[in-house]
């Protein structure tokens, strides 16, 4: 058996250890479930994306108007819609946060 083949075998052993590392480090975990976002968190993520999108649109509109890229007429036609979207996105996020806090409170009360 050549030295190169031995090196190849050594490489295989090393990668097997690397692949097995999560099991070697934590042989008997309390939970092996993936830390995945629940439905509430996914809803929060989407609401935050919507909020950031709306606020970025408002910021860009203001900057474009200030720089003269957008006329006063176009600005007036759109700014109301963009502000309404931003406000709605913020309200939706607040609602989700309130529901989340209420949910946590209920769970805490139950466990107490």
């Amino acid at each position: 058996m050549s030295v190169w083949l031995l090196l190849g075998a050594a490489l295989a052993v090393v990668v097997v250890v690397v692949v097995a590392l999560p099991f070697l480090r934590d042989p008997a975990p309390a939970s092996d479930a993936l830390d995945e976002p629940d439905a509430a968190e996914l809803a929060r993520l989407e609401a935050e994306e919507e909020r950031d999108r709306a606020l970025a649109a408002l910021k860009e509109l203001e900057a474009d108007h200030r720089a003269g890229r957008i006329s006063d007429e176009d600005y007036r036609a759109v700014v109301g819609i963009v502000r309404r979207d931003a406000a709605e996105a913020l309200r939706a996020l607040d609602r989700l946060r309130d529901e989340s806090v209420a949910g946590i409170g209920t769970e805490t009360a139950k466990s107490a």
């Binding site: 097995a20 590392l21 099991f23 092996d32 479930a33 993936l34």
Partner: peptide, 16 residues
């Protein structure tokens, strides 16, 4: 199946 350690192990395989 939603298995954490198996997912990390698969990720390590990709890195290796």
């Amino acid at each position: 199946l939603g298995r954490r350690r198996l997912a990390h192990s698969a990720r390590n395989a990709l890195l290796a």
